[in-house]
């Protein structure tokens, strides 16, 4: 990657807490300008610690982080102005009104009041009608949106969403995804952590997998799915067969117990021409099929394979 494309550069960042727990072990990571990056990992993998370090909530033990070229410790003002953080926990000032709290956030990040911007943010999050409500009176989903509104109040270029859809219902999750895509289309870089694989699969341009404080891999989602994804072709036969013809032995085929289905498993490394040739040879062997189905393994299966192999 061209260094100029990186909006966040994490260089050799390690963190050992006072308890002696090593949360991060020398992480190197670049986030590209304008992308949606999903940091995936099981609980306790170090996702929140990494985000905490980039946002200035946790002191790294080693390494450094640049946000849009600014060192997050030496030039913390320039670096932090560009960053918005939505924390994992629903931590809100329950006695404040929605309007007061977003105004507070904007001021805190050094921006002059801009009620028009705040109105746009609240409208985009369907919070405008609730602007005078006390936060305590809002539902959990609404509170989550208030936290997002607070993080967007100062027009950040990079938005960190720590487990944005944990404990959120399906409808709100869809809304959240739409919102994140909308932000990207405005040029905001989004980094989200999640342990919902479907979320990463749905949203991300690139995926980083973190486990036990180490970045196991960083890859374009599409490449990752292709590289590691198992695919499966199921053929539903016109007439059940008793056994597979021996001339098809070079393909790894499985015949269902009743002889009505043939399953072909392959992955990204296999010759892409293998399917047409398989189909031709099946027909040549007199095996006719009435339907077919293909399936690609989900990111979840990839993830379990990756993390599981390390244990």
């Amino acid at each position: 990657m061209n260094p100029a494309d990186a909006i966040i550069r994490v260089e050799g960042v390690g963190k050992t807490y006072q308890s002696g727990f090593q949360a991060l072990k020398g992480i190197d990571l670049s986030i590209r300008r304008g992308e949606i990056f999903a940091l995936l990992g099981p609980n306790g993998a170090g996702k929140t610690t990494l985000i905490g370090i980039i946002c200035g909530l946790v002191k790294p033990t080693s390494g450094r982080v640049l946000a849009d070229g600014h060192d997050i410790r030496k030039d913390y003002r320039q670096a932090r102005e560009k960053i918005g953080l939505v924390p994992q926990e629903l931590t809100t000032d329950v006695f404040e009104s929605v309007w007061a709290t977003v105004r507070f956030s904007r001021g805190l990040f050094g921006k002059a009041p801009d009620d028009a911007h705040l109105e746009r943010v609240l409208r985009a999050l369907s919070l405008w009608d609730k602007r005078d409500s006390r936060i305590a009176a809002l539902s959990g989903g609404m509170k989550r949106r208030v936290l997002i509104a607070k993080a967007l109040a100062h027009e950040p270029e990079i938005l960190f969403l720590d487990e944005p859809t944990a404990g959120v219902d399906v409808e709100l999750r869809r809304e959240m995804w739409a919102l994140v895509r909308g932000l990207r289309s405005q040029g905001v870089t989004v980094v989200l952590t999640t342990h919902y694989i479907e979320e990463a699969e749905e949203m991300a341009d690139r995926i980083g997998v973190i486990d036990q404080g180490e970045l196991v891999l960083v890859e374009d989602k599409a490449v990752l799915m292709q590289r590691l994804g198992q695919r499966q072709l199921t053929l539903f036969l016109q007439r059940p067969v008793e056994a597979l013809p021996p001339e098809l032995a070079e393909y790894r085929l499985d015949l269902s117990a009743d002889g009505s289905r043939i399953v072909y498993r392959f992955d990204g490394k296999d010759d892409p021409g293998s399917i047409p040739s398989l189909l031709r040879r099946l027909l040549a062997s007199g095996i006719d099929f009435k339907d077919l189905q293909t399936r690609q393994s989900s990111l979840e299966e990839i993830f379990v394979g990756l993390v599981g192999a390390r244990r």
């Binding site: 003002r77 670096a79 960053i83 953080l85 924390p87 000032d93 329950v94 990040f109 050094g110």
Partner: peptide, 12 residues
């Protein structure tokens, strides 16, 4: 309450 995260992550 945890809301201090915002102050600690702000350019202040």
């Amino acid at each position: 309450s945890g809301t201090i995260y915002e102050v600690l992550s702000a350019p202040v």
